[in-house]
Design a protein around this nucleic acid. Structure first.
Lengths: 196, 196
DNA sequence: CCTACCGATCGGTAGG
DNA sequence: CCTACCGATCGGTAGG
């Protein structure tokens, strides 16, 4: 009786969630245009027309991927926010969680958003940008605190763009190696960004 | 008699060059898969089959775009290298030229390379990566000099990835405003990256 | 969710 | 470099 019934609206439940995850993987690997509906369908063992039982269009699948990414990202990010942390430790925690969001295997949603944003209709962009702004606001607060402690010297708004940009671009070059962890990487990011 | 004759091999001469420039613009705006051969042809006033008189395939146009980007990029970058500059000034000069390469209007080649690299065949990737490495080596030298002067505290190789990554990601968010110049932006980048 | 199919568009080609 | 066309593949749909 504790299990979700058919009324469950969990975004990754059932076949719909399978499609979203498979699409995210394929969009990340081949791009939105490069991943065909047939490839997405086959990746979850369906025939080529069947995803359209769950989604009205390919565009709607992309929207679902980005929404799921923002939802998970905001959830994980809010979970490491703690007023008791000093600025540097709060920043390190944010860097760690962001690196896991964009680099950890299976976390394809945010990379898809970052590199396929322009494939979204204007309407969907406008709607989703509000959630993106929430994400940015969390970072801005943490970076403002760094500035107050003298740990960065740039304008905090510019620093946010540089910091998130340098991490987001890691998607294009980071290859997971057995030796090093994302924790080590996070330490290096903090060391690079802060002057102390 | 000083003008180039039909023997000229200048990469941007004539209709071939027109195609490469138009394709770069479209690849940047819509992505490699999103820009059709018909759109490229029409952008230079050709019919849909005519670009194939100049290029064997769409892939070959992408290769030409990336090659032209690397050629121009290396040329402009080498032009600002000067052993007489102190580390910080050399770094500023490199940042300035890199920002112009990726953000100035009409400079679509390197952005296409950065965001459509995976659309290149493995063979072409392998061949072009050698030139990319030359590019990186110039930056690495300049950043090693910064480290020697104590202006950065990270490992120089990691610093290079962070610095170029933060700039390369600007392609996704920078909008040219009438007020501010790339020079101002370059100053801010240097201020953020160096601890002094 | 499958079967069978649609019109549109794709990259590319032959012949001139 | 244009004309006219090719086979393949695309996103999407009707009917069950």
């Amino acid at each position: 009786m504790l299990k979700a019934t058919k009324e469950s609206k969990g975004p990754d439940d059932g076949r719909r969630g399978d499609i979203v995850r498979a699409a995210a993987r394929l969009f990340r690997d081949k791009g939105y245009d490069g991943a065909s509906m047939r490839a997405i369908a086959n990746a979850v063992g369906m025939q080529c027309g069947s995803p359209f039982y769950h989604f009205a269009s390919k565009q709607d699948i992309l929207v679902a991927v980005v929404e799921e990414g923002l939802r998970q990202g905001l959830e994980k990010t809010r979970a490491v926010i703690s007023p008791s942390l000093i600025a540097r430790e709060q920043f390190l925690a944010l860097v760690k969680v962001h690196l896991s969001i964009i680099l950890e295997e299976g976390n394809d949603f945010i990379p898809v958003m970052l590199y396929n944003w322009r494939c979204l209709d204007d309407m969907h962009q406008r709607r989703l940008i509000a959630t993106k702004d929430e994400y940015d606001a969390i970072w801005q607060d943490a970076i403002n605190a760094l500035a107050k402690d003298g740990l960065i010297q740039s304008e905090p708004k510019f620093a946010r763009l540089m910091i998130l940009g340098s991490m987001n671009f890691m998607v294009t070059w980071y290859k997971q190696r057995p030796g090093d962890s994302l924790e080590t990487l996070a330490d290096k990011v903090v060391q690079f960004c802060l002057c102390s």
